[in-house]
Amino acid sequence: MSFREKSAWISLISILVVSGFFFLHVPWTVSPPASAALVHGMMYCILALVIIEVVAHIVVAIRAPEDAQAPKDERERLIDLRATRVSHYVYVVGSLLALTLIHRGANAPGLGFAVLFAFVIGQVVKHAARIVFHRRGF
C-alpha cells in the first residue's frame, strides 16, 4: 500500500471517528438551541482531528520515510483531483439540501450544522474515493 493510500485511510478513519463523536452530541432538530458548548465542542473536535492526523501521518512516515518524502507522481495527483471533484458534487448537493431546511423553520445553528454535516460527508466521500481509485489502480 502506497503512502498516499495510507494517508487516505488515516484521513477517512479519523474524520469518521471525530465527526461521528461530534454529531452524536448535536441535537438532530431543524432548530437546535444556540449553544456555546457545541461550538466549543466543534473546536475541540477540529483540534483532535488535526492531532490524530498529524500523529498518524508521522508514524506512517517513520515506517516508510522514502515513500513519504517522495513527491506525488502524476497518477496520485490525478487521483486526488478526481476524488476532489466527486466530493465537490456531494458537498454542493448536501449544502443545497441543507438550505431546504429553511422551509422547515430551521434557525441559524440548525442551518450551520446541516451545512457542516454536508461538508463532512463530502470529505468522507473524497477520502473513500481516493482509496477506491488507489485500490483499482486509477
Binding site: S2, D67, D73, R75, G137
Partner: peptide
C-alpha cells in the same frame, strides 16, 4: 520518477 504502484497500474 513515479511510484511502484503507478508502474504496476501502467503494466496492467
Amino acid at each position: 520518477g513515479v511510484t511502484r504502484q503507478t508502474v504496476n497500474a501502467i503494466e496492467l
